[in-house]
């Protein structure tokens, strides 16, 4: 399970499986998967969970201004920076 990947608040340290970035840093239009979600704010975590935004899910960022807009499944969501920064993504790449 992915739970092991405990990230500290603001943790940006490049780990071995790098390519991890905040949603805000993703390239618009590219496919990413959600790598992890910050657990420091239970309310936000709960909200993201209810919407099905969980590690392993595919996302595409569509806009970053004025708010972040991304697609998950067949829905689009708008979130502010505060929530967006809780979501870490990594690029979908083929090499193993």
């Amino acid at each position: 399970m992915r739970m092991r990947n405990r990230n500290r608040k603001g943790g940006f340290e490049s780990t071995a499986d790098s390519g991890r970035m905040r949603l805000m840093e993703a390239t618009i239009g590219d496919k990413y998967i959600v790598e992890s979600i910050d657990k420091d704010d239970p309310a936000i975590l709960r909200k993201l969970c209810s919407m099905g935004i969980l590690p392993g899910v595919e996302v595409i960022v569509r806009r970053k201004k004025p708010t972040i807009i991304f697609e998950v499944y067949h829905s689009r969501f708008a979130v502010d920076k505060l929530i967006g920064d809780k979501i870490y993504v990594k690029q979908l790449h083929s090499h193993r």
């Binding site: 399970m1 992915r2 739970m3 657990k39 969970c49």
Partner: peptide, 15 residues
């Protein structure tokens, strides 16, 4: 840790 549990539960349900 309630947050951790929420995440695991959601994860299982979504999978």
């Amino acid at each position: 840790d309630a947050a951790e549990i929420s995440l695991s539960i959601s994860h299982v349900l979504h999978n």
